[in-house]
């Protein structure tokens, strides 16, 4: 088991390194850097000025070297401008003494994520605040979505072809066909718009950042949950119908087990193996939903931060955001692998 975990973690690290390298490369392409220089100094600077600004701020080095610095495995750059020292690990300008005493490495490994150029604050701080907010949202989504989807799926799948099955299946298909930006708009139009007059709920979740109420949090949670729910419910239903036609269910039935017990004792565990993996692999998609919903409802969580970072080419923030999201995806894959092993006795790791 430990060996299995070690191998998985190693694979995860390699993937994360590759992905951050790609993100680093894409965000540090010369047009992006040029745009950054112009946003710092004004749009009307000459190419020479751009070049000298980039040089001064350490952007002129080869991409791989700077990636190493960002990671914290290569020493950060320093620069001596006639006694005034600047550098990756030095805040602003400093004299020789401070510069010498500053640490040589400052990157992700050391816990230094750099500074956000949009929010003018430490990236670590921005991201962790955003993550906390998104965490709350995701928790609510999970609490609504997973039990809901499983119940719908199991109910639909236990008697294939019944009216209940058909009604629930139609409902699931409908929600999977409704992306968040459609369902969000429709829900807001129905429940929050002044034009219709229902006005039961809030069309914005900004106030939920401090104080969660039913009025300001229902719509965002529902919007994300609905889309994922249909998908998971369909998977559960497919898995359930397959299990219900399995030979061992017939065995159980012909042993005299009642229908309720056939479903609860014999079918359920086997039927949940497949959806469990699906739920875990659903995380990358949920992230998508989070970005859309946070933008739509103006909830300043992780997704909103991602959009801000990406649209303003905030390199350091964007890198941190991608690292976090990649890890979320990879960890959910890891959990799904481990959980699969526990749910399915046929696979045992010695």
């Amino acid at each position: 088991m430990l060996l299995f975990l070690a191998r998985k973690t190693l694979g995860m690290l390699v993937t994360a390194l590759c992905l951050t390298l790609i993100v680093f490369f894409l965000t540090n392409l010369s047009p992006n850097l040029e745009k950054l220089a112009k946003s710092e100094l004004g749009a009307r600077i000459t190419d020479d000025e751009v070049a000298s600004w980039l040089d001064k701020n350490g952007y002129a080095q080869p991409t791989l070297v700077r990636y190493g610095e960002w990671l914290g495995v290569l020493p950060g750059w320093t620069r001596d401008n006639d006694g005034e020292f600047t550098g990756r690990c030095i805040d602003g300008k400093a004299d020789a003494e401070t510069a010498a005493s500053a640490s040589r490495f400052c990157g992700v490994v050391q816990g230094d994520w750099g500074e956000s150029s949009v929010f003018k604050r430490d990236v670590g701080e921005v991201v962790s605040r955003a993550l906390k907010l998104t965490g709350k949202l995701m928790l609510c989504v999970m609490l609504v979505m997973v039990p809901g989807a499983l119940i719908v799926g199991v109910l639909a799948g236990m008697r294939e072809g019944s009216r209940l099955d058909r009604s629930l299946s139609t409902l699931s298909i409908l929600t999977t066909a409704t992306p968040e930006y459609v369902s969000g708009v429709v829900l807001v139009a129905i429940f929050a718009s002044s034009a219709v007059g229902l006005k039961w709920l809030n069309g914005s979740a900004t106030s939920a950042m401090d104080n969660i109420t039913i009025a300001n949090f229902t719509l965002p949670v529902l919007t994300i949950a609905l889309y994922g729910m249909g998908y998971i419910a369909r998977m559960t239903r497919a898995s359930m119908t397959e299990v219900m036609t399995a030979q061992y269910i017939r065995t159980a039935r012909l042993k005299g087990v009642s229908f309720y017990n056939v479903v609860m004792k014999h079918a359920l565990r086997n039927a949940l193996i497949a959806p469990f993996t699906v739920i875990m692999l659903q995380f990358p998609w949920l992230l998508n939903g989070v970005v859309i919903v946070e933008t739509l409802f103006n909830y300043k969580g992780f997704g909103w931060t991602l959009v801000q970072a990406a649209s303003n080419n905030d390199i350091e923030l964007l890198l941190a955001v991608s690292v976090v999201s990649v890890f979320v995806v990879l960890i959910s894959q890891l959990i799904s692998d481990i959980g699969y092993v526990f749910l399915n006795p046929r696979i045992r790791i010695t």
């Binding site: 399995a246 030979q247 061992y248 065995t251 014999h266 086997n270 399915n344 046929r346």
Partner: peptide, 13 residues
Amino acid sequence: IYQEPMASLNPAM
């Protein structure tokens, strides 16, 4: 008693 013994036993029990 059925033809496929593997299929007629519940794999998770």
